[in-house]
Amino acid sequence: MGAIYRREMQCYFYTPAAYVFMGVFLALSSVFFGFGNLGARSSDLMALLDRMSYIWMLLSPVLTMRLIAGEKQQRTDQLLYASPCSLSAQVAGKYFAACTVLLITVLATVMYPLVVAVYGKLYVGETLVGYMGLILQGCAFLALDLFISCFTRNQMTAAVAGVGANLLVWLADAMAQALSGSFAARALNFISLYRRFAPFARGQLSLSNALYDVLFIFIMLFLSVRVLDARRWSEA
């Protein structure tokens, strides 16, 4: 797993992928911070974290589209499959590399709370909880998009399908409102990632929602391994 992780990290920083992801994320979040906090003279970072979670939804496929689909497209997957490294280790190595880029990006946003701390009042506990929710949210999107990447050989297809899937699980509770009371509504509410993030965005630490995110990540990674394994039986 270590070898896969190190290679993926090299790949992120030898190609534009990580820079595009970090650059666009930081540019957009700076715009939100500029208008929402500096312009409005507000110390409330919760609204900013809420908006940043929307950016994850749109950008996380940039980090994952290459992970599996790119290997198939370049036919480098055979190098990995013929190696003693297990499929679970391969998937885990790739996933943790994507999470590391996400964490580095989150680390770069620490400048916003620092500015607030210098010029206003920073609610440390709430901010930390908000950040925890933001990271869990991002990692859940990465796991979902990695799973989507297992189904195609084309990176663009993986990216577009990834954004679509993110929107679906993000807005599931909004769709549930239209079907209120039915089983489908309860199911949509259950899978809604926004619903899980909302308490964190209010500064409330919610262990059940944190556990849900961790379980969601685990299931997506497990399914990714199963899909890759199943393809050995069916692919030409």
């Binding site: 190190r6 370049q74 055979q78 490294c85």
Partner: peptide
């Protein structure tokens, strides 16, 4: 199965690690 962005040395190191 080659990674174009890697140097030959880095690629062979990766293959050895695998």
């Amino acid at each position: 199965p080659l990674y174009d962005e890697m140097t030959v040395r880095a690629y062979l190191r990766f293959a050895c690690e695998l």
